[in-house]
Design a protein around this nucleic acid. Structure first.
Lengths: 201, 201
DNA sequence: GCGCTAACTGGCCGGCCGGTCAATTAGCTA
DNA sequence: TAGCTAATTGACCGGCCGGCCAGTTAGCGC
């Protein structure tokens, strides 16, 4: 390791390590990543990683925490700018979530790795999000905008899970005969979903 | 390794290794599994694993192939006993798929690991399944049992993905406020889904 | 300037990883 | 029963893994 610029910037170093680690962890998962590879990719020494993060496990935690905080704040922002419940809000929320995942494939994979690890921490993080979403559904139900015989949390869960799986298992179903594009699938999902949650007179 | 029963049974040995490997791979993923641990768990020497399967990668392939073949034949059987299209068949298929995944949690995790690896092989395997399912949807559409303005493959994909994600990300959403049981979620999903695919007059 | 703290380096280590190999032996065939 | 094949063993290997540590030095407070 030839000594880099004579200047020290611990904060920058931390983020350089975090960025490189996120890239590698997202791509390969925790145990497949080698610290030596990570050090090379972040252009730092292995010792520096230990200096800043203690151990590989702790670094993994730091990567997850940072990513999920980003996810959480982004979702919170989307939720807040949603405004008053009206008939089209649910549709717009689904579209927004779908596009968010499409534009942040790393988040999807990070979620998937943590699911497989059985790590429920990130799930707890969006209790607030889901709670708020479910509350909105409840209001819409009482106003007669959505059918009343469905658990509000299940409405949120259903579209969140469909969007997530669409991107998580893309490699699996993208070659299925007759499968359409992102946009085409979203459109068909919304047709079924919106029709399914609309109250019948 | 104290020599086991004096009897040799290569076929049994193979399946013992495969079984132990499946358990460990399902639980930890490919790279986190150590051959030494696997050997201990299968009550076999490490060398024997290499003798029968060549390498860790080849063993992983063998595990996946066996599991997906089991999955495939089980699904094929379900498809064949489905019989003639009628209004309730789609509902029964969703329930059957949901219960299959509930009773075979290993399959769900195996799918998830392969998705993260970007392995599309298992996805190709069920092209037949999806093709047959989509064909059934198409027939139901032309008979007026299902609405016609939706891509048949997307109908299949939608319930497959929802069921999969429900079990794959259980640790994530099981503590969400208001989230119900397996049965309650399935019920609500079916309410929305069936209502969404039913034609409107 | 002076000295302290912490960022940073490079060399090192014990352990264990996946894999190999020569030797042994069970079980089948003729 | 002799002989061959392949299942099975245990000792062994090179490599590299995560982690440690003694030493160097930049930057900041005084």
């Amino acid at each position: 390791m030839t000594p880099r610029a004579q200047t020290r910037d611990p904060e920058l170093t931390r983020t350089r390590i975090l960025d490189a680690a996120e890239t590698l962890f997202v791509a390969q998962g925790f145990s497949a990543v080698k610290l030596s590879e990570l050090a090379r990719s972040a252009e730092v020494t292995k010792s520096l990683i230990h200096h800043h993060f203690g151990s590989k496990e702790q670094l993994w935690e730091a990567v997850k925490n940072r990513a999920f905080e980003r996810y959480f704040t982004a979702q919170m922002a989307m939720l807040e700018e949603a405004g008053e419940p009206d008939a089209a809000l649910l549709r717009r929320s689904v579209e927004a979530y779908f596009h968010f995942l499409r534009d942040n494939p790393g988040v999807v994979r990070l979620f998937a790795w943590t699911h497989l690890e059985g790590d429920s921490h990130c799930g707890e993080l969006d209790n607030q999000l889901v709670g708020a979403g479910a509350e909105w559904v409840r209001q819409a139900q009482s106003r007669g905008l959505l059918r009343k015989d469905i658990n509000p949390t299940h409405v949120i869960a259903m579209f969140v899970m469909t969007c997530t799986q669409w991107f998580e298992a893309k490699c699996h179903h993208q070659h299925w005969p007759g499968m359409g594009s992102d946009a085409a699938f979203l459109e068909d999902f919304l047709k079924i979903f919106m029709e399914g949650v609309t109250p019948r007179e």
